[in-house]
């Protein structure tokens, strides 16, 4: 069954993360764009919204929680997945309470993230 391609945004200030994830997530034919800071990501989001946003929580200027809030303010159907580094439980709790779809703790395999994205996609297609 041909399913509509998803637009996925990955935000992480460590460029290696995005570079590693992009090819892995594109395998299923979805469109993936990577950003190294929340501000440029939001500017791009304003041009064209995304279905799924994957963001690291710890970033300098705009952190992942702020990204979450800004994305949901722009589009409440977008699924936001937070990458948590340390102190997973506290951050994950805050993110979920503020409407994140799910969280994934570093370090993770691209396949783990893929599984979370597939669940998000199922909800989008519901």
């Amino acid at each position: 069954m041909a399913e509509k391609k998803l637009r996925i945004m990955v935000i992480d200030d460590e460029s290696i993360v995005g570079k590693r994830l992009k090819p892995a997530l594109e395998k299923t034919g979805d469109t993936v764009e990577i950003f190294e800071d929340g501000k440029s990501a939001m500017a791009r989001f304003d041009e064209q919204p995304f279905d799924i946003v994957v963001t690291d929580v710890r970033m300098d200027e705009m952190d992942g929680i702020e990204v979450l809030e800004q994305v949901l303010a722009r589009s409440d159907r977008t699924k936001v997945i937070i990458i948590t580094g340390y102190a997973t439980v506290e951050v994950a709790r805050e993110a979920l309470t503020k409407g994140a779809f799910d969280f994934i703790a570093k370090p993770f395999k691209p396949a783990d993230l893929r599984a979370v994205i597939e669940r998000a996609a199922r909800q989008l297609r519901q």
């Binding site: 439980v89 994950a92 709790r93 979920l96 799910d102 969280f103 599984a115 979370v116 669940r119």
Partner: peptide, 13 residues
Amino acid sequence: EEGLVDRIRVLLS
């Protein structure tokens, strides 16, 4: 199947 257990666990901790 929906990965709810982990998220519920975190929110109830």
